[in-house]
Structure formats: structure tokens, C-alpha cells
Design a protein around this nucleic acid. Structure first.
Length: 262
DNA sequence: GTTCTCGGCCG
DNA sequence: CGGCCGAGAAC
């Protein structure tokens, strides 16, 4: 006889997610139960951290109770805002994907201008000019971004970007990784031009002279050639996107006609 | 190799 | 005590 093991729908999660409870039937912990979740694609999840890593910011699991599968408003308690302790020292080799949150720490990042797909080819960029006035920032706060990586839905880490030779970091955090984070953050968080640290004094004594609204890199020059290359990259990326959207549209159309034929 | 299961650590 | 995850067992 096969033990009853149904995957139940879980209303607290997006459609398609299933919850399963398995009772331990032997050993010292017999009688205890383990709870698992299955994504719409069938991937199994066995803890809340694993689940929230996968769902990222799309679902707020703050008050989600993993065991019962329900939202518990009482769980509103303290939000864990750590990161610094773990992420700082321990990264020698590969970042531990089980403990480092691949979630953006720059909360304002999505409020920035984004490319709006109206209908190619005349895409426009939203310009959101009424940014709330910039807040004071901690010196070298970009170091907190250390270890954050982008990853796809299967938690595979994506290839990181390479930086041009002309970009050199300033200050004690001199890794390429931090430099990239600093520049990316500056681009997203400020509507002003990004110039790098224009004061020569910042190189000698960054703790005193650093301009915190600029990334931790020396002043750099962007040539017309750089701009042309970047335009080309963007053009190609948009073309790829257009082709992908087109292919997706065709696939959906094919699928729906097939469904109605049945 | 993958999946299942229980032990055991740690908070 | 229970969540979480390692690792051996099972397949």
C-alpha cells in the first residue's frame, strides 16, 4: 500500500504551486513531518529560505508560514536585516548560494527609468525626473553589495560583466566586483551624470574627500567610440529581445490553435 | 546519476 | 522544540 501523499494547492502562493507533507515513518523522529513545496515547473523546495531565494521579490514571504502554507499576519515581527556579518568576511572561494541572498539591496532600483516596450521599433525611455532628494550615504557603503550575483530562475549564477580598462577603483575596496556594484548602483540611484571621483584628493585620502554620490572609481573618460560600441550592443540586445518575443508569440498562437482543434 | 529520508545542528 | 540542510539510503 502506498502512503497517501498528495500535493495540495497552496492559495498563499502563486497559481500552480503545490504543497506536500510527508510523515516520517521510522527512526528516532518517527511521527514528525516534513513539508515540501513544488513550483509550477515541478522543482522541489524544502525550506523557506530556499523558497524565498527562488521567488525573490515577486512574493513577500515575510508572513508566510512554511509548515502550514498560510499567510500569518502575526508573523509580522522583526525583519531580519543582516547580510553584513555573513557576506563580509567569509567569501574566499565561491559565494555560498545557500546563504547569500541574490536579492537587490538597492530598494529604489526599480523606480528608475526603464525601457518601455510600446511596440518596436520606436521604443521610448521613461524619464522619471522627480526623484526624491538624495539621502546621505555611508562611506564605502557599496561594499555591502559584495557577493551579490544575478541568477536565473534555476539559481544558476549568470556570468558577470567585464569592466573596461579605463575604470579604476578608489578607496579600500579595490575588487572589480565592488567596482561593478558601485558603478551599477550609482547609475541606478542618481539621475545626475556619473563621472567617478573627480577630486584628485579622493585618491589619496578617500575617507575624507570621497564624493558619496559618485561611484568608487577614478574619473574616467567616455569616448565617442565607447558610445558607438554601446549603442551597437543595445541595438543587438533589442533585436534579440524582439526575436524572442516574436517566437514566443508564434508559439502561443500555435498552442492555442492546437488546443481548439482537440 | 537522482530522489527520498532521517539525523542532527543550531537558533 | 522545530526549521533547515547534510548526507546516507534507496532507486
Amino acid at each position: 500500500m502506498i502512503m497517501e501523499r498528495k500535493r495540495m494547492d497552496c492559495p498563499a502562493l502563486p497559481p500552480g504551486w503545490k504543497k506536500e507533507e510527508v510523515i516520517r515513518k521510522s527512526g528516532l523522529s518517527a511521527g514528525k513531518s516534513d513539508v515540501y513545496y513544488y513550483s509550477p515547473t515541478g522543482k522541489k523546495f524544502r525550506s523557506k529560505p530556499q523558497l524565498s531565494r527562488y521567488l525573490g521579490n515577486t512574493v513577500d514571504l515575510g508572513c508566510f508560514d512554511f509548515r502550514t502554507g498560510k499567510m500569518m499576519p502575526s508573523k509580522l515581527q522583526k525583519n531580519k536585516q543582516r547580510l553584513r556579518n555573513e557576506n563580509f568576511s567569509l567569501f574566499k572561494g565561491k559565494p555560498d548560494l545557500n546563504t547569500s541572498l541574490p536579492i537587490r539591496q538597492t530598494a529604489s532600483i526599480f523606480k528608475q527609468p526603464v525601457t518601455k516596450v510600446v511596440n518596436h521599433p520606436s521604443n521610448k525611455v521613461k524619464s522619471d525626473l522627480q526623484r526624491s532628494s538624495e539621502q546621505p550615504r555611508q562611506l564605502f557603503w557599496e561594499k555591502r553589495l559584495k557577493g551579490l550575483r544575478s541568477s536565473d530562475v534555476t539559481e544558476e549564477v549568470l556570468r558577470s560583466m567585464e569592466l573596461p580598462k579605463g575604470l579604476q577603483s578608489v578607496g579600500p575596496a579595490t575588487t572589480d566586483e565592488t567596482l561593478l556594484s558601485a558603478i551599477a548602483s550609482a547609475l541606478h540611484m542618481s539621475s545626475n551624470p556619473i563621472t567617478g571621483q573627480t577630486s584628485a584628493a579622493a585618491e589619496k585620502n578617500p575617507a575624507v574627500w570621497l564624493n558619496t554620490s559618485q561611484p568608487l572609481c577614478k574619473a574616467f573618460v567616455v569616448t565617442d567610440e565607447d558610445i558607438r560600441e554601446q549603442e551597437l550592443k543595445v541595438h543587438q540586445a533589442r533585436k534579440s529581445l524582439e526575436e524572442a518575443l516574436m517566437a514566443d508569440g508564434l508559439a502561443r498562437a500555435a498552442e492555442s490553435t492546437r488546443d481548439t482543434d482537440i
